[in-house]
């Protein structure tokens, strides 16, 4: 996936100011930045939910799966009914087989008949991602997938997402947790006020933070990152 010079305006406010980046198969790209940086806007443009006011997006031959920040599924239906509905809407030849595959992938086979509203937030997020995977995407966009999950649920979620990337899927996820981005992202794209400040591996981001905010170099990475953003005028 490749994005070049993406611009998005909401009235007078410029939510994205010429953002560009690329992502390769099997790569996990973390889009990081404070609230209001433009992470959700960027992902929604990549997903085709919103149109950009400028720039272009190339997705290659494959499809793009999108997993919104808040679980987009029907809480009064069961796990299986949700998966079956979206498999049918995706016009799968054998929707039931796709459901079985997703139940295995999410590890929710035992809970297939449960109403989604009764599941934990982590399990709901797994179904949310599984629905995003039903389109068999070559690129999967995850908008803040770990929000509201406890540490155990987060660990299981990232294990699941990492396995997807291991199978060849390009995963682009947004987060405002710098440690999560550093731990799970092969590459990190830093956004602030609609600008792309950094695009590279997590180790290079640490180096850049140390170089540009030396006074915070001895502090924890999150504090140093905030100082780095401050130095860059954000």
């Amino acid at each position: 996936m490749q994005a070049r010079g993406l611009v998005k305006r909401f009235g007078d406010r410029e939510a994205l100011k010429g953002v560009g980046f690329s992502a390769e198969p099997r790569e996990l790209v973390a889009v990081i930045g404070p609230n209001g940086a433009g992470k959700t806007t960027l992902l929604s443009i990549l997903a085709g939910i919103q149109a950009a006011d400028g720039g272009e997006v190339e997705t290659g031959d494959g499809t793009v799966g999108w997993v919104p920040q808040q679980a987009a599924l029907y809480r009064r239906l069961t796990v299986e009914e949700n998966l079956l509905l979206f498999a049918r809407l995706e016009k799968h030849e054998d929707p039931s087989a796709s459901v079985e595959e997703m139940l295995d992938l999410t590890g929710l086979r035992e809970r297939r008949g449960e109403i989604v509203a009764r599941l934990s937030g982590g399990n709901q997020q797994r179904i949310n991602i599984a629905i995003g995977l039903l389109s068999r995407p070559s690129v999967l966009l995850l908008d803040e997938p770990s929000v509201g999950l406890d540490s155990r649920q987060r660990a299981r979620l990232w294990e699941f997402v990492s396995a997807l990337a291991g199978r060849g899927t390009t995963v682009i996820f947004s987060t405002h947790d710098i440690q999560e981005a550093e731990r799970y992202g092969n590459r990190v794209l830093v956004l602030a006020d609609g600008e792309a400040l950094f695009d590279g591996p997590a180790e290079e981001l640490r180096e850049a933070v140390r170089r540009e905010a030396p006074e915070a170099a001895d502090r924890d990475f999150e504090t140093a990152f905030v100082a780095y953003l401050h130095h860059r005028g954000h």
Binding site: G48, P68, A71, A72, L73
Partner: peptide, 13 residues
């Protein structure tokens, strides 16, 4: 309310 609308209208219906 279920956030399903954008997902549905993203090519499904």
């Amino acid at each position: 309310e279920e956030n399903a609308y954008p997902r549905l209208t993203r090519g499904l219906v």
